[in-house]
Computed example of a mutant assay.
Amino acid sequence: MERVIKLVLAIMLLFCLLQMPYGYYSLLRFACFAGFGFLAYLAKKKENDTEMFIFGALALLFQPFFKIALGRALWNIVDIIVSISLIYSILNHKEPKEK
C-alpha cells in the first residue's frame, strides 16, 4: 500500500511539469496532503521518526488550505525533487527482517 501511494504521488507530481488545468493542481494538493499525511502516520507506526518528519513536512508544504506561493519554476523543482525521492524510496525499500 505504501509503495502504491508513493508511486501515485510521484506520477501526479511529474504531471505538474505539463500545462494542466488549475483544477488539477487543487486536486494534487489534496492528494499530496492526504497521501503524505498517511505516509507520516505509517512511518510513526514503524517508529521511523525521520520519515515521519519528512512526510509530515511535505504534507504541510502541499496542504490546500493556506497555499504557499513559490512560483511555477520553484514548484516544478520541488515537484521533481519529491518525485525522484519517492521513486528512489520505492526502489530501495528493504523489507524488515522477521525475528
Rank of each mutant, 00 (worst) to 15 (best):
L74T: 05
L18G: 06
C32D: 06
S83T: 03
I81K: 03
M12A: 13
N76E: 09
N92P: 01
M12Y: 11
R72H: 09
W75D: 15
F66C: 11
L58C: 08
Q19V: 12
A40N: 04
F53S: 13
Y25T: 15
L14F: 06
S26K: 12
F15A: 10
V82S: 11
L70P: 01
I84N: 07
I84W: 05
F66T: 11
F36G: 02
L13M: 14
I11K: 02
K44Y: 13
D79T: 02
L9Y: 01
F66Q: 11
H93T: 12
V8C: 12
S83Y: 09
R29Q: 15
A40Y: 01
E47F: 06
L74M: 11
F38V: 13
K67E: 15
S89C: 02
P64V: 01
E47D: 14
A59R: 02
Y41A: 14
I87E: 08
V8Y: 11
H93V: 14
R72I: 07
N48P: 10
S26D: 15
K44E: 13
M20R: 14
N92K: 14
L18D: 12
S83L: 10
G56V: 03
L60E: 09
I54R: 06
A59D: 04
L60H: 01
K67T: 15
Y41P: 01
V8G: 10
A34P: 01
V8A: 13
G35Q: 02
G56K: 03
L39C: 00
V78F: 04
A43T: 05
V82N: 08
L70K: 03
A57C: 06
I90F: 07
C16Y: 08
N76V: 02
V78L: 05
M52E: 09
A73N: 10
G35M: 00
A43V: 00
P64M: 01
L9P: 01
L42F: 07
L58Q: 08
M12F: 11
